[in-house]
């Protein structure tokens, strides 16, 4: 069982690598995958001394940062989606259930409107702060003597989200000519990402993954209910809080880098569960890989195939929504 998981992880890692190679070659200037591999390898070996022809500039400075960011964000959203579904005991939860997206959106809107600041920096910083504030607001609202219950968390998430949505509408109303910038940001995009974003998301993802994977087995027990989990040796209170904060931070970083990208965090863990089963020790690494592959492919399609660079968040929702409807319906018919 464990060996087959390892094999699957290796196979899909290789597939992901190949997709990165191929998609780096696609675009306005098309470059064969062999040359792409050559450029990447020589830049790794020779560092900055590598010859800078037009192809290597396109690959290394333009396409690769965007491609890697989209893959990492895909993995990050899937990771936190898996965690939220596990903690909230709800296969339909997603990284945005606890109001993280609304908080980020509100923060980003403020970031755009603040005078005398460069939106390039102020937007991600404020988006991150907004996500954090809304998260702690939700945790504060739902904590009681008996600890955090999943129903309270979901309900608090809905409350905070709806308040913030109203606040965002108000900010849009105030924004006048900048309203289109805000709207565009909210729809998510990987356009003009740099190596800074790659590093930021990569470090977050690695740390987040290590924390979550450490508690993966405890997450299995939590799905049997708090009492059973505690009496089987899990400190449910502490594990829930650590995982909640970890997953929310991953989401907050992803959102502040890419805007709001829906359905990945909901759909990917859900579909991966069919292949790996619900055991989180298999589910978590596999759904990260699938998420990376899926979001990278989606971004590549918007970048190369579609006539306009449409916002990735709109694309994933337009494709993911109907797919999810189909899956949901299928499962209902199987159950009956």
């Amino acid at each position: 069982m464990f060996r087959s998981t390892l094999v699957m992880i290796c196979v899909f890692s290789i597939i992901l690598g190949l997709i990165i190679l191929v998609s780096s070659g696609l675009g306005y200037i098309s470059i064969p995958p062999f040359k792409v591999a050559n450029i990447i390898l020589s830049s790794i070996i020779q560092g900055k001394q590598a010859a800078k022809d037009i192809h290597s500039v396109v690959i290394l400075d333009v396409r690769l940062p965007r491609i890697l960011t989209s893959a990492i964000v895909g993995a990050g959203l899937s990771l936190s989606g898996t965690v939220f579904q596990g903690i909230l005991l709800n296969p339909l939860a997603d990284p945005y259930t606890l109001g993280v997206s609304a908080g980020a959106a509100f923060g980003a809107a403020i970031g755009f409107l603040i005078p005398f600041s460069d939106p390039v920096y102020s937007v991600p910083v404020f988006a991150f702060l907004g996500a954090l504030c809304s998260l702690f607001m939700v945790i504060y609202l739902s904590s009681s003597d008996a600890g955090l219950s999943s129903n309270h968390l979901i309900l608090s998430g809905i409350i905070v989200t709806s308040i913030l949505s109203a606040a965002i509408s108000f900010l849009k109303y105030l924004a006048n000519e900048q309203v289109s910038v805000i709207i565009f940001w909210l729809m998510g995009s990987f356009v003009s990402k740099t190596w800074f974003e790659v590093n930021l998301t990569w470090i977050t993802l690695c740390i987040g993954f290590m924390i979550v994977f450490w508690y993966a087995r405890d997450l299995n027990l939590i799905s049997l209910g708090a009492k059973t989990a505690v009496t089987t040796g899990v400190n449910t209170q502490r594990v829930t809080l650590i995982l909640l904060i970890t997953a929310s931070l991953i989401t907050a970083i992803c959102v502040s880098v890419s805007g709001i990208i829906g359905f990945i965090g909901l759909l990917v863990p859900h579909m991966t569960r069919w292949i790996t089963g619900p055991d989180n020790r298999r589910l978590i690494p596999m759904s990260m890989l699938f998420g990376a592959i899926l979001l990278l492919c989606a971004d590549t399609i918007t970048r190369t195939v579609l006539p306009h660079d449409i916002p990735i968040g709109v694309f994933t929702a337009l494709i993911g929504g109907p797919v999810f409807c189909y899956i949901f319906r299928q499962q209902m018919t199987i159950k009956n």
Partner: peptide, 9 residues
């Protein structure tokens, strides 16, 4: 009575 939401075997 425990409700289990995930399809563990």
């Amino acid at each position: 009575q425990t409700e289990i939401h995930f399809p563990y075997t």
